[in-house]
Simulated assay, not measured.
Amino acid sequence: MPEGDTVFLAGKRLHAALAGHELVRGELRHPRLAAVDLTGLGVTGVASVGKHLFTRFDDGTSLHSHFRMDGSWHLYRPGMAWRRPAYEARAVLEVPDRVAVGFALHDMELLPTAEEDRLVGHLGPDLLAPDWGPEHEAEALRRLARRGEHELGLALLEQRVMAGVGNLYKTEVCFLLGLTPWTLVRDTPDLSGVIALSRTLLLSNADRPEQTTTGSMHPDQAHWVFERGNRPCRRCRTRVLTAEQGDGVYARPAYWCPRCQQGPAPAPKRPRRR
């Protein structure tokens, strides 16, 4: 599932392309919205809330979309070939000089703008909120502290605690804290630091599609341990271990360095024999 900075950047680019313009084509191909025609509506703005996007129109409605695992929004010039198959398109929003195409958007809803909170009101503070301040931090801290018996890695992924962290940042935050993802929240020192670090990493990548937690933009050096299972830790060269964290559909691969990170951990997955 995309990280919050990916959704934030998509919203920023869609806003720049669509806001202030009238739709010359407003086609929705989602099963529940196939009869809706948005043509002629003015786009007043596009905004992200955690991993949710809202495209707002001048009739007081908003188009909600969520990327889930494989969704995305692309921008094209009129007449350009699409980079994904047309049968995957769920929304086509065209203004005079740009075409926004939403692919594989399984969650879409058209609702009054005044009712957006119905879809995102349960979320914790958005780590990329433009107006982030002490009250957001205090609320995130309150929600995180209440998960004292939860594993830190799972608490970081819980959007009801704070919105925006996905598996990449969960992994890298735990590494930079020197704690395994299975460390309990109550055993984690400086929860305010956890929140600040999560926000710092998201902010550092919010204006570009590439994501780095090390400061290097080289593809093989961009992350400390994420997706480096059975490869050397970039800090100490110890072999990075991997195991699943979470249950059922919520299970995600976890990566950690047994030397750089302290705390409980399950038996790692054995590498496949070739």
Rank of each mutant, 00 (worst) to 15 (best):
R239W: 10
G50N: 06
T61I: 00
V120W: 04
A251W: 00
M69R: 03
V185M: 14
D247K: 11
E116K: 00
P258R: 13
E137Q: 14
H30V: 01
A35K: 10
T55G: 04
L119M: 03
W132F: 12
M108P: 06
T180Y: 15
T180M: 06
W132M: 11
R160F: 03
L105P: 08
F54N: 02
D107P: 00
P268W: 06
V95D: 12
G166C: 15
R272N: 11
P125D: 04
V99K: 09
L184N: 01
T213H: 04
L127V: 01
A81D: 10
R252M: 03
C260E: 04
V36Y: 08
T39V: 05
V7N: 05
A16L: 09
G148K: 10
A104D: 15
S62L: 04
W256D: 09
E135Q: 04
V165L: 09
R68L: 15
A155F: 07
M1Q: 05
P125V: 02
D207F: 10
V165W: 08
M80T: 01
L177Q: 13
M108Q: 15
L111E: 01
H218S: 10
A206D: 10
H223D: 07
R231H: 13
E172C: 08
G166A: 14
V240P: 07
G166V: 01
T188K: 08
S216G: 12
G178C: 07
Q159V: 07
V43T: 09
H30Y: 04
F103P: 02
R143M: 02
A89D: 05
Y255P: 02
R142Q: 13
G193L: 10
T6S: 11
S62F: 00
L201F: 11
V99H: 06
P271C: 03
G133W: 13
L93W: 04
G246C: 07
P258Q: 12
D58W: 00
V24I: 15
D131W: 03
F103W: 09
T212R: 13
D187T: 09
R228G: 11
Q221P: 01
R272H: 03
E115D: 14
V185F: 05
T200R: 15
L111R: 05
P266Y: 07
T44Q: 02
S48T: 08
W82G: 07
V36R: 13
V240C: 11
A254R: 01
F175Y: 15
A196V: 14
M80S: 14
V173N: 06
S65F: 01
W132S: 14
P96Y: 08
L202C: 13
A251K: 13
R208E: 09
T180L: 10
T200P: 01
G26R: 06
G79I: 10
A104K: 07
R252L: 07
M80V: 07
K51L: 13
T171S: 15
L191I: 13
C257G: 01
R239D: 08
V194Q: 05
F226D: 06
V240A: 03
N205D: 07
N230S: 09
R143E: 11
S62C: 05
Q261A: 05
L128C: 06
M1Y: 03
I195R: 02
T171K: 06
L203V: 02
F54K: 04
E22Y: 05
R272Y: 06
G246P: 01
L168A: 11
L203W: 02
